[in-house]
C-alpha cells in the first residue's frame, strides 16, 4: 500500500511540475505602452491633417468661402456651443441612431438565427439579405417618405432597412464559423435544439455577431444621415443631417464642415466607446487577440 501512496504522490508532484512548466503566461499591457502605441499615432495624424488644411488656406489655393480655415469651423462650433444648440443637435441624431440601431438588433438577431439554422429560409432569403447590404440606404428614403410621411417613423424605417441585413449577416457568418467539434461536444453534453442554440451556438458565434453589430451601427448611422439630409421638415427637429443641409442652403461653409466633422466624430466615438472595447473583451477572453 505504501508504495502505491508514494506513486500517487509522485504523480501529483510530476503533474504539478508539468503544469507549472507549460502554463501560459498572460501579460497585461501597461498604460504607458497603450498611450504610446494606440493613442499617440491617431492624434498625430489629426494634427497633421489640420496643419495641412491650414497650409492650403494660407496658400490661398481657392476662395475662402469654398475652403474656410480651421479656425472658422472652430468658431462656428463655439457659437453653437454658446447658443446651447450643439449638444442638442448631436443628441437628436445620436438618440435616433441608437434607438433605431436597437430596433435593428431586435429584428436582425432572430432573423439571422433563422437564416443560419433553417436550410429553407437560408436558400430563400439568404442571397437577398446579402444583396441588401450593398444597396445604399439612401435609396429607401424616397419610398419611406411616401409610405410613412415626414416623421420619425420614416427615419427608423430607413435605419432598419440599412442595418438589419448587416446584423443578420454578421450572425449568419458567426454561426457558420462555429467549429463543428464545438457543436458535437455540445450535443454529447445534451445541448440539442433550442438548448444547443442558447448554450452553444450563440455564445460560439459571438465574435462574428459583434462584427455584424459594429457594421450594423455604421449602417444605422449612415442611413440616418442620408434620411436627415434628404428629408427635412420643421416637425423633425434639428439633427446633424439637417444641420448639414441648412449649411448648404445658407452657403455657410464652416457650418457644413462642422456638420461633417460632427457626423464623423459621433461615428468614431460610438465605435471607440462601445464596440471596440466589447469586441476586444470578447476576443481577449477567448485568447483570440494576438499581440504582436
Amino acid at each position: 500500500m505504501a508504495s502505491t501512496d508514494t506513486r500517487t504522490d509522485d504523480l501529483a508532484g510530476l503533474e504539478a511540475g508539468l503544469d507549472a512548466l507549460d502554463a501560459v503566461q498572460v501579460r497585461r499591457t501597461p498604460v504607458r505602452e497603450i498611450l504610446v502605441g494606440k493613442v499617440l499615432p491617431p492624434l498625430l495624424a489629426v494634427v497633421l491633417v489640420v496643419v495641412a488644411w491650414q497650409l492650403l488656406v494660407t496658400a490661398q489655393v481657392t476662395e475662402e468661402y469654398k475652403l474656410p480655415p480651421p479656425s472658422a469651423v472652430w468658431d462656428s462650433a463655439v457659437d453653437m456651443w454658446l447658443q446651447g444648440t450643439l449638444l442638442e443637435v448631436v443628441w437628436t441624431s445620436v438618440s435616433r441612431g441608437l434607438l433605431g440601431f436597437m430596433m435593428a438588433v431586435a429584428l436582425g438577431t432572430p432573423l439571422g438565427l433563422l437564416v443560419a439554422r433553417v436550410k429553407f429560409v437560408r436558400s430563400a432569403i439568404g442571397p437577398i439579405l446579402s444583396g441588401l447590404q450593398s444597396l445604399p440606404s439612401v435609396a429607401w428614403v424616397a419610398p419611406a417618405v411616401i409610405w410613412l410621411g415626414l416623421n420619425d417613423r420614416m427615419m427608423y424605417a430607413v435605419i432598419l432597412l440599412g442595418a438589419v441585413p448587416s446584423i443578420a449577416n454578421g450572425l449568419v457568418s458567426g454561426v457558420d464559423q462555429v467549429p463543428p467539434l464545438v457543436i458535437r461536444a455540445g450535443r454529447t453534453l445534451g445541448a440539442t435544439g433550442l438548448r444547443g442554440t442558447w448554450h452553444i451556438v450563440l455564445p460560439a458565434a459571438l465574435p462574428g455577431y459583434l462584427a455584424g453589430l459594429k457594421q450594423g451601427w455604421a449602417f444605422s448611422w449612415r442611413s440616418l444621415m442620408a434620411a436627415e439630409i434628404i428629408a427635412s421638415s420643421p416637425d423633425l427637429g434639428l439633427g446633424l443631417g439637417q444641420l448639414l443641409e441648412n449649411g448648404r442652403n445658407n452657403f455657410d461653409m464652416p457650418g457644413i464642415f462642422l456638420s461633417i466633422l460632427l457626423i464623423l466624430f459621433v461615428g468614431i466615438a460610438i465605435d471607440l466607446l462601445i464596440f471596440s472595447p466589447l469586441e476586444r473583451w470578447v476576443l481577449r477572453s477567448r485568447g483570440l487577440l494576438v499581440r504582436s
Binding site: 467539434l181 454529447t188 453534453l189 445534451g190 477572453s285 477567448r286
Partner: peptide, 29 residues
C-alpha cells in the same frame, strides 16, 4: 444513459472558464 465523449482536441468552450465548462455540463444534466 447517454455516454460521455472525449475528443482528440479538448473541445472545451472558449467563452467559458474551466470551471464554467464543467458547470455547463452539470446544468445540461
Amino acid at each position: 444513459g447517454r455516454p460521455a465523449l472525449m475528443f482528440q482536441e479538448h473541445a472545451l468552450f472558449p467563452w467559458l472558464t474551466a470551471g464554467k465548462n464543467i458547470e455547463l455540463a452539470l446544468r445540461l444534466r
